[in-house]
Design a protein around this nucleic acid. Sequence first.
DNA 1: ACCACCTCCTGATCGC
DNA 2: TGCGATCAGGAGGTGG
Length: 268
Amino acid sequence: MPELPEVRTVAQVLKKLINKKIARININYSKIINQNSLDIKLLIGKTLKDINTIGKYLLFDFEEYILISHLRMEGKYYIKDLKLPLNKHEHIEFVFSDNISLRYHDTRKFGRMLLIKHEDLNKVESIAKLGSEPFTLSKEEFYNKINKKKIPIKSLLLDQTIIAGLGNIYANEVLFASKINPFKLGTEIALEEAEAILSASIKILNLAIKEKGTTIKSYTSSLNVVGNYQKHLKVHLKSGKKCEVCQSEILKTKIGGRSTYYCLVCQK
DNA sequence: ACCACCTCCTGATCGC
DNA sequence: TGCGATCAGGAGGTGG
């Protein structure tokens, strides 16, 4: 569950753990931990002070440390009773001193965690290179970042160094809402179109945050978080269905290897 | 520097 | 039904 609205939802739900102290940590699949990471077990005895997000990154503030977590395709956090045995996809377990068990679950094992000292946050390259989230990105800055690139706008929206937080679902939805063809190159996007993309991004992400994200594959989670944005989807996964605006058929194609859904008539 | 492609994994679904 | 191929909400690394 990995785009900005889903990550913010996870952060919101996990805030109930703030002010709890870590008693022990079990690591069952160590490749989840980034090679440059400090030893995760340094967190034992530390208290969770806050949880923040930047783009699709979760930032757990543990006193002098920050645990950076990226869910990638399928990472999830479950809060469970300590007594429940670990599921085969629960790779890291953080046990808090009141016996609450926080488990990192990741079927495809693509997610990564990185433990750093607080003051080193700006040295983490992936975070430092991150573009602004749509809420704070100016249309001029966005336009300047895309207007020399001969890359389809769909791929540019997925580039986190240009704009942070959009993933495949919301990139598809944003381009439909702003009536722009996903194949259109960055060089072909006018300033007004860049502005339309930004305002559509803000509107869509805000609604998706309110709806607690999009749940596509139904799954049961101890978090009991089921997003509801899927009822607002206009093009994503809608190939073969009729466009709500013009009634023509929603098409599916690949751009940069990612599934892209769009309406050829509405999106010029 | 830029960009297209490959890779990391598992499980569900597709197509013959 | 069987079974290999393809696909899935992401991004880091490689090499042209």
